[in-house]
């Protein structure tokens, strides 16, 4: 292992490909505009990628728990947390922190309910999170009543702030990513998640409290979804009932394109950023080319599938 040249070790990194894909899509965009607006595109990409990464981290921990583990309630959780927080804060700056606590608490409770359903009814996580998402979405619709309440100005400012073209939000999420990377690779909790994903039975026999770890992971995922809903509502000037829509697909795509194994037991935090940037830049590129909505959707789908095929070839080669 130690004799391997550095470049070979770099090439073996599963996150490398998502960054390469993101960079080439960005380069294609800039080539088309002949160098104009490259910086603005990057600023926007980092802002929107930050939202994808927040939910992507949670989904990644859940997916890593092993086959069949996936959280489909992320969009509904985002909507409910965003709606609740906006309505409680009602534009008052003094309530920004209580609002945040409420959004996060909403996630904690939903995560506990999700895992409670999985455990008590012995049903696959997909079905548990699907049924709970129906209930959560209904609650959000009922509570929202179509009224759009503006976020407190300070929150909106923070969510959209930039320093020399660098979005403050993205910096915050990068710090969160580093923290989560340490959580995954350096703590007992993270190791336990990986061990359960590789072989749940063996992990249990080795004395890992499987139930508690899985419960914690579903709670972590829903809490991050709550955080994303809160920040997203601040960014977009209020909570909307469809605000979580694209995040179901994005959260899964970001995890898989980022190099995390769908079979579980093998996670990759840095790849999330590459994949999230790639997803946003891809849409930007197709927009820049002046393509219609239909072609854009078709191309997005085909490119996602192509990336998955390329990634599977890479895993096979190793």
């Amino acid at each position: 292992m130690a004799a391997e040249p550095a470049w070979q070790r770099l090439l073996a990194q599963p996150w490398l490909w998502s960054y390469l894909a993101a960079a080439s899509v960005w380069a294609a965009t800039i080539a088309f505009t002949q160098g104009q607006g490259g910086g603005q595109v990057l600023t926007a990409a980092f802002t929107f990628a930050a939202f994808f990464v927040i939910v992507g981290i949670g989904q990644m921990f859940v997916v890593t728990l092993g086959p069949g583990n996936v959280d489909l309630s992320i969009p509904a959780t985002m909507t409910l947390a965003g709606t609740l927080a906006m309505r409680i804060m009602d534009g008052h700056e003094a309530l920004i922190l209580p609002g945040l606590a409420l959004a996060l608490g909403c996630g904690v409770v939903i995560g506990a309910i999700n895992y409670g359903l999985i455990r008590a009814l012995r049903i696959p996580p997909i079905i548990a999170t699907l049924s709970s998402s129906f209930l959560i979405q209904s609650t959000a619709i009922w509570y929202n009543r179509g009224i759009r309440i503006k976020p407190p100005p300070a929150l909106a400012e923070f969510a959209t702030a930039q320093v020399a073209g660098v979005p403050v939000l993205a910096v915050g999420v990068i710090l969160l990513t580093v923290l989560m990377h340490v959580l995954l690779t350096r703590t007992r909790y993270g190791r336990a998640v990986l061990a359960i994903g590789q072989n749940q039975r063996a992990a249990g026999l080795a004395g890992i409290p499987v139930d508690r770890i899985r419960l914690g992971t579903y709670m972590l995922c829903a809490t991050l979804a709550g955080l994303c809903g809160y920040v997203q509502a601040g960014f977009a000037g209020g909570a909307a009932l469809n605000m979580g829509e694209e995040y179901l697909l994005a959260s899964i795509a970001v995890v898989v394109i980022g190099g995390t194994s769908v079979a579980g037991g093998n996670a990759n935090v840095p790849g999330l950023w590459g994949a999230a940037l790639f997803l946003f830049l891809l849409v930007t590129m197709l927009n820049t080319f002046g393509l219609g909505a239909g072609i854009r959707l078709v191309m997005t789908g085909i490119i996602i599938i192509a990336v998955i095929i390329a990634a599977s070839g890479r895993q096979r080669a190793r």
Binding site: L249, I252, A253, V256, V262, G292, A293, G294, I295, R296, L297, V298, M299, T300, G301, I302, I304, I305, I308
Partner: peptide, 15 residues
């Protein structure tokens, strides 16, 4: 993931 990608393709074709 493959069918997620396909959902974009079908939607795009419909549009």
């Amino acid at each position: 993931v493959v069918t997620l990608g396909m959902s974009f393709v079908w939607l795009g074709l419909s549009v």
